[in-house]
């Protein structure tokens, strides 16, 4: 009970829409760690959170095209998985499913908040800066508690029982399929990232990274980032100095 309350509070802090919430709690990697701490298993939480996070690598905060909600997937996925002693693969599947429902929390947050600017307009009419700032900071916190905090508490409290019941009724081949889903879903995360990053002329570096890892088994990502940075530096250093189009028009200024 107390633990579920903490999960609810965490859900509130996570979705309070400021850098502290974004970077210390929102990402499943971080949420997993905190939830693990609440349930006395920080390392398990961290590992589960990291596995969930991979499926969300391409998640973008500008909204719109996200298939599943990052906030609830990481937080509640870990909370449910850790209480039910799930494998990380199963946790990813549960998390992504939770996130599909969780998307509605985001839509609710943005919709209910849409009343705020109209109230802020009234304070602007009076020249009341403090009023604008208070309206900016306070009402939306109540919205977050309503659409995030309370549902998270309920999911953390009742979710494991429901999921346990579901799992118990699934046959062995179903569990095998379920586990495979968790190993495949990260492909969506990587594919979404590829969509943002891919430039035809630079795609060879993606192939190079894959080849190095596939054939040599190298999968230390910090090492990879360093090599990647070195290659990036060499690449831009070797490019001829360009004269940007439209530069000559500036002469008349």
């Amino acid at each position: 009970m107390i633990q579920a309350v903490f999960v609810g509070l965490l859900a509130w802090a996570q979705s309070s829409s400021n850098p502290i919430g974004w970077w210390l709690i929102r990402e499943p990697l971080m949420a997993g760690f905190w939830v693990g701490l609440i349930y006395g298993k920080p390392m398990e939480g961290l590992i589960i959170g990291a596995a969930i996070n991979v499926a969300f690598l391409g998640w973008n905060s500008t909204g719109g095209a996200n298939p599943s909600d990052l906030y609830s997937a990481g937080l509640l996925g870990t909370a449910v998985a850790i209480q039910s002693n799930m494998s990380t693969e199963q946790a990813v599947v549960v998390a992504v499913s939770i996130g599909v429902i969780g998307n509605y929390a985001w839509i609710l947050f943005m919709s209910i908040n849409s009343m705020v600017p109209s109230i802020q307009d009234k304070y602007a009419e009076k020249g009341d800066v403090r009023g604008i700032m208070l309206m900016q900071a306070l009402p939306s916190q109540a919205v977050v508690i309503l659409v995030r905090g309370i549902p998270a508490f309920l999911a953390a409290f009742y979710g494991p029982t429901v999921i346990d019941g579901l799992l118990a009724s699934v046959p062995a081949w179903g569990i095998a399929g379920f586990n495979t889903v968790g190993k495949v879903l990260p492909a969506v995360g990587v594919a979404m990232l590829l969509k943002y990053m891919a430039r035809k002329d630079l795609l060879v570096f993606f192939g190079l990274g894959f080849a190095v890892s596939a054939y040599m088994g190298m999968n230390n990502l910090l090492f990879a980032a360093l090599i990647g940075a070195a290659m990036g530096y060499i690449y831009i250093s070797l490019q001829p100095k360009e004269v940007p189009a439209g530069m000559s028009e500036e002469d008349e200024i």
Binding site: V54, L57, K183, V184, P186, A187, G189, V190, L193, L194, M197, A198, R199, L202, L203, F205, F206, G207, L208, G209, F210, A211, V212, S213, A214, M218, N219, L221, A224, A225, I227, G228, A229, M231, G232, Y233, Y235, I236
Partner: peptide, 19 residues
Amino acid sequence: TFFSIMGLFVLGIMVCKFI
């Protein structure tokens, strides 16, 4: 360009590591 090269290279390795 710099970040794309670095990112794409790391992404290639992520394919093997995470999927």
